[in-house]
Design a binder for these strands. Structure first.
Lengths: 201, 201, 201, 201
DNA sequence: AATGAATGAGAGTTCATTCAT
DNA sequence: TATGAATGAACTCTCATTCAT
């Protein structure tokens, strides 16, 4: 009743949902390729093969699509990583699986990876939110490892940030820039560094 | 005689150099506060207290000032870190001094720190150039440490990227976001992590 | 669907075509009055009573409208002249009709006449193209006159240029400058000059 | 006393006159190459190898140099033609010499030729003045020819404009566009056309 | 639900001209 | 007499957004 111009994902018809999804996918592609500021709404609607006006039936502004992409991405990424980590037995293994999952994600969604990076210019607050959220995932897993005696006691938030940063940069350097998997020797070198640093013995 | 429209840093009068510096400083401030895309040339010239046209006497475009800021920043930062590292005796100490120097730098130049981050959107190539340059600094120092038997043998480029990334994220999290020094417990936790990871014993 | 930003004269709605025409007419008027360089796009959109941005929905740039005006003008003029010449019996008569048609055209479209002249500064190539096109019309008619024995043999391209230039200058001097018809005595004097010059006896 | 900022060609030192001439020559070249509107004052001062400010010591504005060039050109051209025509015996010969002189002039001063053409956009009034002046030269010579019985009676102003226009276009077509002399067959064809048209028998 | 024509605020940039030195 | 640094008005063009259909 309050919102008669759509935008509310609820009461959308099936067709409406499809159109919305087309736009969102187009936005992902276009933002990924051109960057938020170089990308225009027209670019997006053309990519989506819908009219210019249609965009505003589903999103309040260019910024709103961007926000939605990041939030969606963030959620999916964290779920994926968590799922993957569950398969492990030790916490070390879990961390390894987590890294692997992240690298695969970047390889499969380079556009979204880029979009997140762009938040540093587009919306600092969102950027901080994203990394804090990601770090808190690491933190949880780490503190379990400590409780169970697998990792030594230390300032865990710091370590969480360290691990996250390593994942971030290796993903950037080898996966995003080169468009390949992280090479085994790189992965191993990084893991050895990390686990020598945090394991109890 | 001959050259009236400037842009060449050489043969600039004293007054010209001052004006140029005013604009560069203003650009640093404005880009830092508003981000590259939200910042307009007018914002910069107003901050610099010069006329709009004056900007174009000294820089070919908005992008050119930006590039200059990054390159200048990059050079100064690397020199500062190197100077600081020289004061150390062991390589571990050198690395610690390096990190400290970097954190101080971020604290003193938050705007420039932000500007570099923005390159991820503004100019990917510049962004890669910056990090590769920075990483190669770490690499050099590390391989010396290995040669002299202080650090263990490993895939050094990876480790360089890991160290750089840790510095980057801790600097972001504690210095840039909070505007304070990296707390001692954080610094120690990170250094312990790192050196347990790379030292020989 | 698909094409939102226009510029293609095809698939334009009726309203779109109207707007485009309004802009084109306004441009003709404004270029005619102020000249290409003194005329601004704002001048044109104000004359057309549309928003500034609307201009760029229909033309890529100020130069593009200009080109279109010239080409349209050139085509229409040549068709008009040809139509008029067809009504004649002898080739002398045909030439006379052609000149008359040209002078009438200038009287009816002084702005367009001026716009063509401006090409000498705005776009030399276009200027040459226009006059070569016009001269080739004269040439065709002349060589027929020669073949049929009405005109004497001579270097026809030269004569074509001479006739064209006479039309051009009389049109400028009496029609464009004074805003009147070419006076009879002027017309007769010029025609006599010309036909004494080219007729066989 | 009235004018203390120079600009008055009178009380100029020898050096001043030289500087003024340098600027005028540079302006001729630059206007000729780029056209009045595309040419900037900086272009001119750089070509003249003087400072930007120096320009305004000798000319009130960009437009003033332009005016001066045209007037100077017009005067010199008319003198040159007149001198040349004096060498002839018959009036027909005089006209031929006049045309020749004009074509040579265009060949030697293509930049000035172009500058005059540009007046059609830059300053209509100047443009009309120039052509009226030129036509009146033809007129004088023609009416003498009539008085002395060499040319037939006719509407002389018209014929003057016709002759002038022919010279103008042949000069443009063969000399200015092609950068060569008017070919003999073209020259002869044009002269034959003209003199069959105006001579008594 | 879908469209695309219309818009105007605001961007980056140019350049004729001024003026202190 | 010569200079070039400084200026701001004015330009062309872009684009997120609105709205009538």
């Amino acid at each position: 009743m309050l919102e008669n111009t759509i935008k509310d994902i609820q009461n959308l018809s099936k067709k409406g949902l499809e159109t919305r999804a087309k736009i969102l996918n187009a936005a992902e592609k276009v933002f990924g390729e051109k960057g938020y500021y170089e990308a225009s709404v027209v670019n997006i609607t053309q990519e989506a093969e819908v009219g210019q006006g249609t965009f505003y039936n589903y999103f309040e502004s260019k910024k709103h699509v961007y926000d939605e992409l990041i939030q969606q991405y963030s959620r999916e990424l964290r779920i994926t990583i968590k799922e993957e980590m569950k398969k492990a037995i030790t916490h070390e293994e879990a961390q390894r699986y987590g890294f692997k999952a992240f690298f695969n994600w970047v390889k499969d969604h380079p556009a979204l990876y880029s979009i997140v990076q762009q938040a540093v210019v587009v919306d600092q607050e969102l950027y901080r939110w994203y990394y804090n959220k990601l770090a808190s995932g690491f933190l949880k897993s780490l503190s379990q490892g400590v409780q169970e005696g697998e990792f030594r006691e230390t300032h865990l938030e710091t370590v969480a940030y360290c691990l996250m940063s390593i994942g971030q940069f290796l993903g950037m350097r080898w996966v995003f820039w080169e468009g390949q998997d992280v090479p085994d020797e790189v992965f191993d070198a990084a893991m050895t560094l990390v686990f020598k640093g945090i394991k109890k013995h």
